[in-house]
Design a protein around this nucleic acid. Structure first.
Length: 383
DNA sequence: GCGACCGGGGTCTGCCATCCCC
DNA sequence: GGGGATGGCAGACCCCGGTCGC
């Protein structure tokens, strides 16, 4: 996933580099040629603006091309921006971002991916930047989040809402450090309405009370800290996933409460369909290997992350372990070996076979350790 | 010293649908 | 009617190291 994003970014940068290596001279060009036309056309009456509108869009396109923006990508993403009748602020945006340390390629990439950014006034941008800077420490940290997720910074024009969410989260006991973590990891959280954010928090509190918990505030904080992306998902999805897990595992209230606050927090954001499908396929697979339902329930309870693994990944992973004589009971005892990639497991199995490692006698714990520890262990085994 | 157990870190944007307002 | 704002979904693990008991 990260690789895909990286490739996209690189492609984007490459495209912008092809259009223009740098637009250091562009502010002058924009001011002298394009902007007056746009300013002029923007004052034209709406019902008489059609021919001028065409020119207006043309100059906008010229500006964006000069800036190295992937206009086709931008137009495909938000065609409305290119049809709008009022003034755009591409020059102001570029100057603003440049003043914060962004390169021309980064600016082009940002506009290509979220063209509505050019509709924001410089005043709005300054105000929003200041709000974010109250949470994050440096401009470079800000730019890194903004570059990664332009939509989070530019999608909303409601700066007051951002402030309200910060105030609300602070009232829940989130410290500046927590807010920093949230903003860096999941900036989109701060784009939702305060009302919805409040609903999500109340929903988590209700779950806690429903399960007999006595400290809903702490429960909510713990769950959100374990997985901040719960904020980004719908209440419906989280509720359904909890219900599915509860129905399958048949847990009591206190166990369920601990489960949600523990490792299950990670899988609550999965698509409900994906979760259900994986649950079914893991069950089928384990039954085919001779496991009882109680074994499978225990597996899900102790290692719910197994539901994160797609059948296409899990199956070969299990097969390679079983192939070298590891028993399914051993996997159930140490499910965390499934945490590692199939490639990693295969590599380790190969090395262990070279030293005739006996899994029956020594267990499979050696597969569940960091690379550093594994290599140290291998050195000793070879001696 | 060793293995077992466990918690936590990185990474999460891009796109579509729908609603609302001008 | 159209653009903007917002909600929601798809995507689909891997790895490290601290601590503790033996």
């Amino acid at each position: 996933m990260a690789a895909v994003h990286g490739v996209r970014a690189l492609l984007s940068l490459h495209r912008s580099a092809l259009f223009q290596r740098s637009f250091g001279l562009i502010p002058v060009q924009l001011t002298s040629t394009c902007l007056p036309t746009r300013l002029c056309s923007a004052t034209t009456k709406r019902n008489k603006a059609r021919p001028e509108q065409k020119n207006c869009n043309k100059s906008l396109l010229e500006n964006l091309h000069l800036m190295g923006v992937d206009v086709e990508m931008a137009r495909q993403r938000q065609p409305g921006v290119f049809r709008r009748k009022s003034l755009t602020n591409e020059q102001g945006l570029a100057e603003f971002l440049q003043s914060k340390g962004a390169s021309s390629e980064e600016i082009a990439s940002i506009i290509s991916r979220f063209p509505r950014a050019i509709t924001r006034s410089t005043e709005h941008l300054e105000e929003r930047w200041e709000l974010w800077r109250k949470i994050l420490n440096t401009d470079s940290e800000m730019l890194s989040v903004l570059e990664r997720s332009p939509e989070s910074f530019f999608r909303s024009s409601d700066n007051k809402n951002f402030e309200n969410i910060i105030t609300f989260l602070t009232s829940l006991g989130f410290k500046t450090k927590d807010l920093q973590r949230l903003l860096v990891k999941a900036p989109r959280i701060f784009c939702g309405s305060l009302d919805l954010t409040r609903q999500k928090v109340n929903f988590l509190k209700d779950i806690c009370v429903e399960l007999g918990g006595t400290n809903p505030e702490q429960f909510t904080k713990t769950v959100l800290y374990k997985n901040v992306f719960i904020f980004s998902e719908s209440i419906k999805r989280i509720r359904t996933n909890i219900d599915i897990l509860r129905a399958y595992l048949g847990l009591g209230n206190s166990e369920m409460l601990a489960f949600i606050q523990g490792s299950a927090a990670k899988i609550l954001v999965l698509s409900t369909e994906y979760l259900q499908n994986n649950l079914n396929s893991v069950e089928l697979k384990m039954v085919s290997l001779g496991c009882q339902k109680a074994d499978i329930q225990k597996l899900f309870y102790t290692y719910p992350v197994v539901l994160y693994i797609s059948p296409a990944t899990l199956s070969p992973k299990l097969e390679c372990l079983l192939k070298v004589g590891i028993k399914v009971e051993q996997i159930l005892e140490t499910p965390r070996v499934l945490d590692y990639s199939t490639q990693n497991i295969l590599g380790r199995l190969e090395q262990l076979q070279e030293v005739e490692y006996n899994f029956q006698k020594n267990g499979i714990g050696i597969l569940d350790c960091s690379q550093k520890r594994f290599l140290a262990k291998m050195e000793k085994l070879k001696l």
